[in-house]
């Protein structure tokens, strides 16, 4: 399982929406955080989110211990099972 947390603030709003375009990905809530989960990788295209760079590089609030970030650059965020 891959689990990624993103804080629900206006700048981050598109991140779970873009992640959920993959039908394997589900988006739930833990308090004010989006909990983005998938059996496989979670991939978010930066340009699709429209996030400017400062927002993009600070959008990840937490990554569960069974998951790891393998890409977080100007193109995409990719989290995979560890």
């Amino acid at each position: 399982m891959t689990t990624l947390y993103v804080l629900d603030v206006p700048e981050n709003a598109t991140v779970p929406v873009v992640a959920a375009q993959d039908p394997q990905v589900s988006v739930g809530r833990v308090g004010p955080y989006f909990e983005i989960r998938s059996a496989g990788p979670i991939v978010v295209d930066r340009r699709a989110t429209g996030c400017r760079h400062a927002v993009w590089y600070s959008a990840v609030a937490g990554v569960a211990r069974d998951s790891r970030i393998v890409q977080h650059d100007k193109d995409a965020l990719r989290v995979e099972p560890a």
Partner: peptide, 19 residues
């Protein structure tokens, strides 16, 4: 940074739901 995000994920699960 990776260790911080992993620890923070645990704290989110522990503390954010009831916030």
């Amino acid at each position: 940074f990776g260790k911080l995000l992993a620890r923070k994920a645990e704290l989110i699960v522990e503390r954010a739901a009831s916030w």
